[in-house]
Nucleic acid binder design. Structure first.
Lengths: 152, 152
DNA sequence: TATAGACCTTGCCATCATTGGAAGGTCAAG
DNA sequence: CTTGACCTTCCAATGATGGCAAGGTCTATA
């Protein structure tokens, strides 16, 4: 099967398949006399593995480790679990980071009239002169009000 | 004030200040006879604005719009709010995406013994042959489940 | 058989925001 | 005057992906 078929079968673009080969994530496959790459079902199976791992947000390096463990009959599931949980922690960290931004901004926006006048708590917050503590609290997350948010 | 001082005062690295200047996010500042950039308090104030916007995850393009609105005495707060809310939606989308990955993986990991044996639901899931919808089996989860078919 | 068009090959560029480094000039303290 | 910290510009790399170009190959059809 050529690279186009392998791409369609695996869900990974031909471009990315060549890229993964170039960086050594997957082995070089055999070529036809004309130089076309030839993929076996086994190769496609590996690509699908990568496709799923990628879908879970694993990096190329992590996928490389996972592929090695997959191949390793003597693997310890603890090794797989460790990689997975480290990734979960990272995903959660990033998600929290995004949610903090979102909440801060959402709060500011909720206090913005959104009309034709220039006064705006979002702009006010961004233009504050220093990084003083009275900035929007993202870590403390005190639920207690400060609704009005001194928007001068 | 030279770029190093401006960087320290604004929280943005000298490297990034030069970059922001090169792409036109901030105007070119005056230079000393020796070619050193000179920053005024106003310049630093603008850099702090950028620092805060960046901290909220705004892209350079969005910051450019926000800076223009900041400078615009006749701005409509609705324009600011629109940008902010669009960004909130994007942040939430990304956060949800990460959380979905995290939850899927977390669930798989919770069913993994994490011992010295090779059987592992995480590897099993990744190695499934097709994109079938029979997601992860829940708590009940037969531990006997299909051994990941390795390639060899 | 000739040809069109779909596919393959390699290689380079672009993204986005940021960091790093090299080579060379400048400034301030000792 | 030296030293070291700073500044300047330019170039490169990151990670994962898409795009394009130039050229070769395969396949179906006229």
């Amino acid at each position: 099967m050529n690279i186009g078929k392998a791409a369609a079968a695996s869900g990974i673009s031909a471009k990315m398949i060549r890229y993964y080969e170039s960086i050594g994530l997957i082995p070089e496959v055999s070529r036809t006399a004309a130089g076309y790459r030839e993929y076996t079902d086994k190769d496609v199976h590996r690509l699908r593995f990568i496709w799923r791992a990628r879908d879970l947000g694993f990096s190329v390096d992590q996928m490389s480790e996972l592929l090695a463990l997959w191949q390793d009959r003597g693997r310890a599931s603890a090794d797989v679990k460790r990689i997975a949980l480290a990734h979960v922690a990272e995903l959660e960290r990033k998600a929290r980071e995004l949610m903090e931004m979102s909440e801060t901004l959402s709060h500011l926006a909720s206090n913005c009239q959104g009309d034709s006048r220039p006064d705006c708590p979002i702009i006010n917050q961004l233009s504050k002169p220093c990084g003083c503590e009275e900035a929007v609290q993202s870590e403390g997350d005190k639920a207690d009000s400060n609704q009005a948010d001194r928007q001068e």
